[in-house]
């Protein structure tokens, strides 16, 4: 790697000798804008095995959705550009495939659920038509058979009276039901990897609980791997096996879920966890990470988090911290991860 800041650290599945189902390796994505080049993703690596749930946690602009769109191959290029990196699915680098070959993978092997189901669904076609399209296009089924499949899927995601509702349009469904239809479309062809980009952010908590339960169930049934992109620490704690925390286009912490919540190893993760209101803090100030998220056009030198970091030392401003390996399963991109782990304030 030419970039010394990026450690091509891989997760244990790889070190055990079995290649992971999906591996993102040192991925860079940049956007040409009128103000200059926005480096949205700066060397992201993560890996995923069958049946596993990886939560990608980060706030807006951290690059979590752009990474997912790069995996799906749905980035608009230009303005987007992938200057380097690999996305290996079952060992093949997706970025080297032809557009035709990628279309074969997209939807069939890697599928995606979007945040806003209303704008992701086509308003002028019935939901049945849109689900059936998956079977017509990818499986070459006839109209009748495809509709029958669509009804079956709507049943599977528990839409009541699927047979009657198959001819309804997206606007006739509630937000939760629309998200179920999105999920039905994404699991239609039994994908190996499901990418869920903030699947419940637009929904109420009671509906969120229904959708997360549905996803977990579908995952159990088919041993699907799932990438859950979210900013909600609560949702992550509920479903994830492992977490990749992103900040400023980089993974800052990579760990099994229990470790992150018990002993965060990066000051950003630690700050996020501490800013959650807890019962015993009532009447006191919440812990707040000071400052603002970085501007992608004008990233701070060194560690992107350094202007907001309580552990900052001189070398944080000059040297980009590599992803230090803490144990076989954990890593943190902080020069002072030992101090953060021990809870010593910098």
């Amino acid at each position: 790697m030419q970039n010394p800041s990026v450690d091509t650290h891989l997760l244990p599945a790889d070190t055990l000798g079995t290649a992971p189902l999906l591996a993102v390796d040192n991925l860079h994505v940049e956007f040409a804008t009128r103000q200059g080049v926005a480096r949205a993703v700066n060397g992201v690596s993560y890996a995923l095995n069958a049946g596993e749930t990886l939560a990608v946690l980060g706030e807006s602009g951290s690059g979590k959705s752009v990474t997912a769109q790069a995996i799906m191959g749905i980035l608009d290029m230009p303005p987007a550009r992938i200057p380097k990196g690999e996305i290996r699915f079952r060992g093949t680098d997706l970025l080297k495939l032809s557009e035709n070959a990628r279309t074969q993978i997209r939807g069939q092997q890697i599928a995606m659920v979007f945040q806003d189901a209303l704008s992701a669904l086509n308003p002028v076609f019935t939901v049945g038509w849109q689900i059936a399209e998956m079977f017509r296009v990818h499986r070459g089924m006839g109209k009748k058979a495809a509709y029958a499949k669509a009804i079956e899927l709507m049943d599977r995601v528990r839409i009541p009276a699927a047979r009657q509702r198959v001819h309804d349009y997206p606007h006739q469904f509630s937000g939760g039901m629309r998200q179920r239809i999105m999920i039905a479309m994404s699991i239609a062809l039994d994908p190996d990897v499901l990418i869920a980009d903030e699947p419940t952010t637009a929904l109420d908590v009671t509906v969120q609980a229904q959708i997360m339960e549905l996803l977990a169930e579908l995952q159990r049934e088919s041993n699907m791997a799932m990438i859950l992109i979210t900013h909600d620490l609560g949702v992550v704690a509920d479903v994830a096996d492992k977490i990749a925390v992103m900040y400023g286009g980089r993974i800052v912490e990579n760990a099994p879920v229990h470790d992150v919540y018990k002993t965060p190893a990066h000051p950003y993760t630690k700050g996020l966890l501490e800013s959650i209101p807890r019962v015993d803090q009532k009447g006191q100030d919440l812990y707040a990470i000071k400052g603002l998220p970085p501007n992608l056009l004008d990233m701070p030198t060194g560690c992107a988090f350094n202007p907001r970091c309580p552990y900052r030392q001189d070398n944080c401003v000059t040297d980009v911290p590599p992803l230090h390996e803490i144990s076989g399963t954990r890593s943190s991109a902080c020069h002072y991860w030992r101090e953060v782990l021990d809870g010593v304030e910098g």
Binding site: G176, M177, V205, T206, Q210, M212, E213, V236, I276
Partner: peptide, 26 residues
């Protein structure tokens, strides 16, 4: 009770045994 139980708790500890009242429908 349903509303409170639906809120995800930001702590993975004991998540398997947490009580969850999942309301049906909208």
């Amino acid at each position: 009770q349903a509303l409170l139980s639906a809120v995800p708790v930001p702590d993975p500890e004991g998540r398997e045994n947490r009580e969850r009242i999942i309301l049906q429908g909208d």
